[in-house]
Amino acid sequence: MLTFLRRRIASSALPLVVVILGVFCLARLTGDPGNLYLPLSATPEMRAEFAARHGFDQPLFVQFGDYLTQVFRLDFGESLRTAEPAADAVLRAFPATLQLAGATMILAILGAVVVGSWAAYRPNSVADRVASFTSTTAASMPDFWFAIMGVLVFAVALGWLPTSGTEGAAAWVLPVLTLLIRPFGVLVQVVRGAMVTALSAPYIKVARSKGAGEVRVVFGHALRNAAPPALTVAGDLTVGLVNGAVVVETIFGWPGIGKLMITSILQRDFAVLQAAVLVTAITIFALNIVIDACYALLDSRVRQGVTT
């Protein structure tokens, strides 16, 4: 296992540099930030001065060299927009996103395993139809409907929950629910599909004939076999959330990395964008290593489960 981890981490170093370089170059293809940061009536001299001050007049490779040396000294530059260190902005926003994504994925996975298995237990039954239909319908709705309708109903009309913000446990309900819908719907479908196949496999009959209880059959034997595809998809969905839940963060005023990233792209705040992508990239790489490790573990256990 340790060798596996070491090799994976080593092989992730180069792709990480590619990501940094890519974002650095792509960002600079999106136009001159001077237009945004100087008043409309600024003179050409002021614009040239601005570009010189921030190094935008240098050749790209010189800029990137400077940036890399800075990064090695853990200096991620200063935000053009807010005049604070880019690292501060990113390290403040990222935990907010992680918390939200974590809570959402835990609920989505638990819910999807239960509902998906229940639906798969009797494929094509009424229960299956209802579960599949509801979850896919929910998953394919525009998320801002849920967000805005949720606010109008539960915050404005009923007064049960706050409209937005981050204060108190109640403020988590609407963002998490809005965020939950799509991963939940997708996972229910994936779990259901994999479970249908798993439950009809011969070894399930074997397990049953040995007198294993239904709960043990479904969640012990079948689920373990159905887990790999669900795990991959869940991993990708988590990656999507780590990259930021822009709609939810925008509507509920959640100070997360998604909103920060969008703002820094649209506002050409390169230092913040680069720092944000670096942090999310590291997280995504780490997450994928964890998923692969889970696979390896699951794989050996699956084999044991089948042979013994």
């Binding site: 805005i148 606010v151 109008l152 915050a155 706050p162 925008t250 509507i251 005023g253």
Partner: peptide, 16 residues
């Protein structure tokens, strides 16, 4: 601060 206009309006109505 809230980017969505309808949320700003809702905050007035829900006394936030």
């Amino acid at each position: 601060w809230r980017a969505e206009g309808s949320i700003r309006a809702a905050m007035i109505k829900s006394d936030e």
